[in-house]
Amino acid sequence: MHRVLADLTARLRAAGCVFAEEEAALLTRAAAASGVSVDELAERRIAGAPLEHVLGWVEFDGLRIGVEPGVFVPRQRTVLLVETAVALAADRADPVRAVDLCCGCGALGLAFAVRMRALGREVELVAADVDETAVRCARANLAGHGTVVGGDLFAALPESLRGRIDILLANVPYVPTDAIADMPSEAREHEPHVALDGGPDGLTVLRRVADAAPAWLAPGGAALCETSRDQAAEAVAAFTERGLPARRVDSEELFATAVVGRR
Rank of each mutant, 00 (worst) to 15 (best):
91 D>R: 15
94 D>M: 07
124 E>C: 11
212 A>R: 12
220 G>P: 04
203 L>I: 07
52 E>C: 12
104 G>W: 12
60 F>G: 02
126 V>Y: 02
194 V>P: 00
1 M>D: 05
93 A>L: 09
225 C>R: 02
107 A>Q: 04
41 L>E: 06
94 D>P: 11
11 R>D: 08
220 G>C: 09
143 A>M: 02
207 R>P: 05
10 A>T: 14
243 G>H: 07
92 R>W: 03
237 A>V: 10
237 A>R: 14
191 E>S: 01
11 R>A: 12
84 T>N: 01
222 A>F: 00
82 V>P: 01
65 I>W: 01
42 A>H: 04
150 G>C: 06
147 T>L: 14
89 A>E: 01
253 E>D: 13
151 G>D: 05
24 A>S: 08
137 C>W: 05
247 R>T: 15
72 F>Y: 14
21 E>D: 15
115 R>H: 12
169 L>F: 09
89 A>V: 11
93 A>R: 15
25 A>Y: 04
4 V>F: 13
81 L>Y: 06
83 E>W: 01
74 P>N: 06
193 H>S: 02
240 T>G: 05
79 V>S: 02
9 T>I: 08
109 G>A: 11
222 A>M: 01
134 A>D: 08
113 A>Y: 01
211 D>S: 02
217 L>E: 03
160 S>T: 15
179 A>E: 15
154 F>M: 04
76 Q>L: 11
74 P>I: 13
169 L>G: 08
51 L>P: 00
110 L>T: 14
103 C>M: 04
225 C>I: 03
104 G>C: 13
7 D>F: 08
57 W>P: 06
4 V>R: 14
4 V>N: 12
233 A>Y: 05
228 S>C: 10
220 G>T: 06
68 E>S: 11
69 P>M: 13
95 P>F: 12
174 Y>V: 00
110 L>M: 12
98 A>V: 15
170 A>S: 05
68 E>Y: 00
208 R>C: 02
95 P>H: 12
184 P>G: 11
215 A>I: 00
89 A>H: 04
45 R>G: 01
164 R>C: 06
106 G>F: 10
126 V>P: 03
71 V>K: 03
183 M>K: 10
48 G>D: 07
139 R>H: 02
190 H>K: 03
20 A>C: 09
28 T>G: 00
70 G>Q: 05
73 V>A: 03
263 R>K: 13
101 L>G: 10
153 L>F: 12
60 F>Y: 05
9 T>G: 14
142 L>C: 10
88 L>N: 01
149 V>K: 09
3 R>T: 15
22 E>M: 06
130 V>R: 04
143 A>C: 04
151 G>E: 07
2 H>R: 15
167 I>A: 01
219 P>V: 00
203 L>H: 14
242 R>T: 03
105 C>T: 10
194 V>N: 00
100 D>S: 06
175 V>W: 11
70 G>K: 05
148 V>A: 09
100 D>Q: 04
236 V>F: 04
160 S>L: 13
212 A>F: 08
158 P>D: 04
94 D>W: 11
208 R>V: 00
110 L>D: 12
249 V>M: 10
223 A>C: 13
147 T>C: 08
138 A>N: 07
117 R>S: 04
6 A>K: 14
